[in-house]
């Protein structure tokens, strides 16, 4: 009973098709203005390169991958995707405030696993997503959504690979979720 009450008090999410239309129009407007789509993983890459460059400048400059993103005239943080990602955080916060979902720190997990298990898998999952996004030239936002929407072959490849693999391995991780 108590559980039902708390669930009933949970604020509703918007209709998914409305969310989809809004997101599609946003991708469209983004391409119409900037000539390219949205992204997310790129900002973390910029942060990695920036911190490495600040703490161990010589190593960062000699790193075969990081040196591609280091230039003399501006910091790797001074890029489009970093500002857009600050926006993602602010927009998420704004929606959370509007719908009453901003609360103190908590971990969401299936009742069948502990918070600790959830956090360990969140860390591993994040690491894998980070590594995969570098091979994929983008994540779900930049490659799968914006890439496919602009008819890029690579975008569709990444989209089918992510979701196809998700379905293929879902069975083995079912205890984490259901």
């Amino acid at each position: 009973m108590n559980k039902h009450q708390t669930i009933n008090k949970e604020p509703k999410y918007i209709n998914p098709y409305l969310g989809g239309v809004l997101l599609g129009l946003l991708v469209l407007v983004t391409v119409l203005i900037t000539g390219r789509g949205l992204g997310a993983s790129g900002a973390i890459k910029s942060t990695v390169v920036t911190t490495a460059h600040v703490f161990t400048p010589e190593q960062a400059e000699s790193n075969a991958y990081m040196k591609k993103f280091i230039s003399d005239d501006h910091s790797p943080m001074y890029t489009w995707l970093v500002f857009e990602t600050i926006g993602i955080f602010l927009g998420g916060l704004l929606s959370g405030i509007v719908f009453g979902r901003v609360k103190k720190l908590r971990t969401e997990h299936s009742p069948r696993i502990t918070s600790k298990t959830r956090l360990i898998f969140a860390l591993i999952g994040g690491m894998l997503f980070g590594i995969g996004s570098q091979f994929g030239r983008g994540c779900t936002s930049g490659a799968a959504l914006s890439g496919t929407a602009t008819f890029a072959l690579g975008g569709a490849v990444v989209m089918f690979a992510i979701f196809g693999t998700g379905y293929a391995v879902a069975y083995f991780f079912r205890k984490l979720w259901i």
Partner: peptide, 29 residues
Amino acid sequence: GGVIMGIGFIMGGFCPGTSFTAVAIGKLD
């Protein structure tokens, strides 16, 4: 890359963009 991301998706439950919004509303995961 997509295969690695797919496994990360199932294990982590987020993709990068969505995890930032989870951070914004106070989700430790």
